[in-house]
């Protein structure tokens, strides 16, 4: 009788520990959202996205912040920082562009792009300073 109790006790302790571990992994160590593998939540032209932020930034923030956005536009310029590409969609002027900070894999795919080309990029919107900013972006076509 006693040994049965002990076995049940040890077994339930194991169950608690294992489920605890998985719960911990699922919350504390949960991975970042894989943007490359996720479907876009919003599909829009670069100019329309910029325009929305220009009209009412607060409304645009509610609509676009943290969303995965697929955006189409022509390349204003491409810069590199720490081997990562920063692709500007728009005229490449001081403001009013969509600036796409590419992921490492997105940067590799972007190697052969040139200014003026029309492309589609998917990334996460973090907001608007002089331009609308997308991070962890990847090249769609």
């Amino acid at each position: 009788m006693n040994s049965k109790k002990i076995i049940i006790g040890v077994a339930s302790l194991f169950v608690v520990l294992i489920s605890g571990y998985f719960l911990f992994e699922a919350t504390y160590n949960k991975p970042h959202l894989n943007i490359e593998a996720s479907a876009p939540e919003i599909i829009i032209d670069a100019a329309a996205l910029v325009n929305d932020f220009g009209l009412n930034e607060q409304d645009a923030n509610e609509k676009y912040l943290d969303k995965i956005i697929q955006v189409k536009g022509s390349i204003g310029n491409i810069k590199y920082k720490n081997n990562k590409a920063i692709i500007t969609l728009g005229d490449g002027g001081l403001m009013g562009n969509v600036v796409c900070h590419m992921s490492i894999s997105g940067s590799q795919k972007s190697k052969d792009l040139t200014k003026g080309q029309n492309i589609t990029i998917k990334g996460k919107c973090t907001g608007h300073l002089l331009d609308v900013i997308l991070v962890e972006s990847t090249l769609i076509k």
């Binding site: 504390y28 970042h32 959202l33 943290d66 919107c125 973090t126 907001g127 900013i133 991070v135």
Partner: peptide, 10 residues
């Protein structure tokens, strides 16, 4: 932009 801060853990 505060949303641009990237952390190791989600």
């Amino acid at each position: 932009l505060m949303k641009s801060f990237s952390f190791k853990k989600a």
